[in-house]
C-alpha cells in the first residue's frame, strides 16, 4: 500500500469547541461550628446556601463541619484542587471568593506573553526567504 496510516502523537482535546463542559466539578465549604473566624461562613451557609447551590446545578456542593478556619475548596476536571481560607470574612467577601473558585478553569495562574495563544497552525505559514519578490530580497 502506497499510503500508510501512522499513529498520531499529539491530539488535543479542546474544551469549548463543539461543547463546553464546566471545569469546576465540586466545591467543598468547610466551617467550624464554634470558632469565631467561621462566623461569616456560618451566616452564609444559613441564609444563602440553597440559592448558591440552586444557581449552579452543574457543580456538586459539599458542606463539611470541621474545627479550624473556614475554607472553600474547588475541585476541577483536570485534577487540580484550589483552596482558599476565608477566616474572619463577611458573607459578601466569602461570596466573592466562591465566585472566583466557581469560575476558575483549574489551570495554574500564568502570565500570557502573547495576545493570542493557539494550537492551530499559522494561516500565514512560516516566513521563507525564497518567497520574497526578487527586488525586495536582502542583498549582501
Amino acid at each position: 500500500m502506497p499510503v500508510k496510516a501512522i499513529p498520531v502523537v499529539g491530539s488535543v482535546l479542546r474544551n469549548g469547541v463543539g461543547a463546553f463542559v464546566h471545569p469546576c466539578k465540586r466545591i467543598t465549604l468547610r466551617f467550624c461550628n464554634w470558632g469565631g473566624s467561621s462566623k461569616g461562613m456560618r451566616e452564609l451557609l444559613r441564609t444563602q446556601l440553597k440559592d448558591i447551590a440552586a444557581k449552579d446545578p452543574k457543580i456538586e456542593f459539599n458542606v463539611l463541619q470541621e474545627s479550624g478556619h473556614p475554607v472553600i475548596q474547588g475541585e476541577y476536571t483536570n485534577g487540580v484542587k484550589k483552596t482558599i481560607c476565608v477566616r474572619n470574612k463577611n458573607p459578601t467577601e466569602i461570596l466573592e471568593k466562591l465566585t472566583f473558585i466557581k469560575d476558575c478553569g483549574g489551570t495554574k495562574l500564568k502570565k500570557y506573553k502573547r495576545a493570542v495563544e493557539s494550537t492551530n497552525e499559522s494561516v500565514r505559514g512560516v516566513w521563507s526567504p525564497f518567497h520574497v519578490e526578487k527586488e525586495y530580497r536582502f542583498k549582501i
Partner: peptide, 21 residues
C-alpha cells in the same frame, strides 16, 4: 457524538499519513 466526542478533538491530519513512494 459530534458535539462532545468528535468536534473537541484536534488531530493533525497531515501527520496520520506516510507515503512510501
Amino acid at each position: 457524538v459530534s458535539q462532545y466526542i468528535i468536534e473537541p478533538r484536534q488531530v493533525d491530519l497531515t501527520q496520520i499519513m506516510a507515503f512510501s513512494k
